[in-house]
Design a protein around this nucleic acid. Structure first.
Lengths: 252, 252
DNA sequence: CCAATAGTGTCTATTAGACATTATATT
DNA sequence: AATATAATGTCTAATAGACACTATTGG
C-alpha cells in the first residue's frame, strides 16, 4: 500500500495496567476510581495515553510509577521491583464511546506494599480482591450489592485475562517470587501459590519440590520467625526464569 | 485525565501476521516482498492498516484472507481453517521511519496449502524457512548471501516471538493439529512436532502418548497409506484444547 | 524377499502425591 | 506443656523414556 497519511484512520493508543499482589491469602488488583464520564464513579484499571515519542513498555512503567510509586522491572532484570510484561491488546471499535482507542494492557506482579499506595493520583486508588471484581463482571444481575459493580470499559475482561496469565505463568516460570519481598521463606512462597491458584498445597511436598528445582531459590543464610513456629530459612529468587520440571496445579 | 481530542498524539494501527506452516519437515513462514520504501525490495510479514470501524482480530482475518485465501478461524471454532490468535504488540517510536505506527501482531497456524498462495497480492509472496529468516536477523555480517537478508522493520523480532509462541504452545495445547489437514495420521502429527521443535521423537512413545491423552484425537475410522508402509488410522482433532498431561519437549 | 511405517508390549528409573517424623520457635 | 510452622524421610502408584516385537503395506 502506498504511503498516504490520510489513508489510515487515526487512533488513540493507551496502556492499561493489571497490577496484582497477594495479601490476606488472596489475589488483589489495583483499581482507580474514574472522575469523569464515561463510567464516572466506577472503578477502572490504571492507565493512560502513550506519549508521542514513548515506547509502549516505558509508558506502562511510567503509569505504574505514577500510580503506585513502584519501579517497574522489565523481564531481563533480576533486582527487586515489580515484574512487568505485556499482556494483550484490546481494540474493539466501541470499547471507548468517545473515540477509537486501542489499549495495550500490561501485567504487573508486585509484592504486598508496605504503605497502601504512594503515588500521585492515589486519593482514589485501592486494592480490590480479584474474586469480587470478576464476580461483578459475571453476574450483572445484582449490581446493587456492595462491591459488585463491574469495572469500567472492557477492564473486567482485561483483568480476567491478566489473572489467568498469572495463574498459568507461575506454573512453569519462577514468577511467583515477584509477589514476594526480596527475601522470603518457602512457606511464604507456598502461600503465594495457594492464593493465586485458590487451592491448598501440601507444605512438605511443596518444600521438597521448590528447593529441589535448580535455580529457583537461593538460600541467603538468614532465618526468620515472622510466621511463628520453627525459624525458617530465607531465600531469594534464583537466576532461573523457566522451571523444569514445572509446578503442577492440582486437578486442572 | 479529561477528555481532550488534541491531548493525545495520533497513531496509526496496523496488524502484522506471522503465518506458519509445516512443509518439508521444517517450519515455514509467509513473507511478502515490499514494493515501496522504506525497505523496498526486502521481505516483510504480511499486514496492513486497521480500518476505522474494524475489530483488531477482524483486521487480521481480513489480511489473512487477502494474502492467502485462507479463512481465519478464531480460538473458539473447531472446524477446518487456520488457527488465529493475538501474539503481541510492537510500538517502538522509530520502528517505522515514516510515522508513529503501533502494530498488533497475530499468529496463524495453517496446514500446508495445496496451491502455493492463492491470494490477491500473491505475486510477491512466498513461504520461507523460518530458520533462514531468523539466521539473517542474527548474523548481520553476511547479508550478501542468498537468503540472508533480514526482514523489514522489526519483523524479525516479531517472527522470532511467533515461532517461540508456537513452540511452547504445542506443548500444552492441541494446537499442533492446526498444522495438519482435517484428517491426519499419528505419524503426520509427530512430524509436525519434530519440525516445530527441531528434534526427533520416538514414534512408539509418541503414539502411546497422543492416543492416550483424552480429547486430543478422535479416530475417523478411515485409514491411509499415503506415507507408505502399513496403513495408518486417520484421526481428526478432538475437542480438548488444553492437554493434560502436556507433551514434553526433550532436553529443555 | 526387503524396506518402510504403524501399532502394541515390556521394563526401569524417576517422580508426584500421601503421609510419618523430627526440629525449633512462641504462648 | 501445647501449638504452630519448618524441614526431612518413607512409601506407593503413575509415568516418561528406552527398546523389543508384531502387523501390513509397496517394491
Amino acid at each position: 500500500m502506498p504511503y498516504d497519511p490520510s489513508a489510515f484512520p487515526p487512533f488513540a493508543v493507551t496502556v492499561d495496567l493489571v497490577v496484582l499482589t497477594v495479601r490476606k491469602d488472596a489475589l488483589y488488583a489495583l483499581v482507580v476510581r474514574r472522575g469523569e464520564p464515561p463510567y464516572q464513579g466506577r472503578w477502572a484499571l490504571p492507565g493512560g495515553f502513550v506519549r508521542d515519542d514513548e515506547d509502549l513498555e516505558s509508558a506502562a512503567g511510567r503509569e505504574l510509577t505514577e500510580e503506585t510509586g513502584l519501579r517497574s522491572q522489565a523481564l531481563e532484570d533480576q533486582d527487586a521491583g515489580a515484574h512487568l510484561e505485556q499482556l494483550a491488546t484490546y481494540g474493539a471499535p466501541q470499547r471507548d464511546p468517545r473515540m477509537r482507542v486501542v489499549s495495550v494492557a500490561y501485567l504487573v506482579l508486585a509484592p504486598d506494599l508496605p504503605s497502601p499506595i504512594a503515588g500521585g493520583d492515589a486519593r482514589s486508588a485501592r486494592w480490590a480482591a480479584t474474586d469480587a471484581l470478576l464476580e461483578a463482571a459475571d453476574g450483572a444481575d445484582r449490581e446493587a450489592e456492595e462491591q459488585h459493580v463491574p469495572l469500567a470499559f472492557d477492564h473486567g475482561e482485561i483483568l480476567r485475562d491478566g489473572v489467568e496469565r498469572a495463574r498459568s505463568k507461575i506454573e512453569y516460570s519462577s514468577l511467583a517470587t515477584a509477589f514476594c519481598p526480596a527475601e522470603f521463606t518457602v512457606g511464604e512462597l507456598r502461600r503465594v501459590y495457594e492464593a493465586v491458584w485458590g487451592v491448598a498445597l501440601d507444605p512438605r511436598n511443596f518444600h521438597r519440590k521448590v528447593t529441589g528445582t535448580p535455580g529457583f531459590l537461593v538460600p541467603t543464610g538468614g532465618t526468620t520467625t515472622r510466621q511463628g513456629g520453627r525459624p525458617a530459612q530465607l531465600f531469594r529468587a534464583g537466576g532461573a526464569t523457566l522451571l523444569n520440571p514445572p509446578m503442577l496445579r492440582p486437578e486442572v
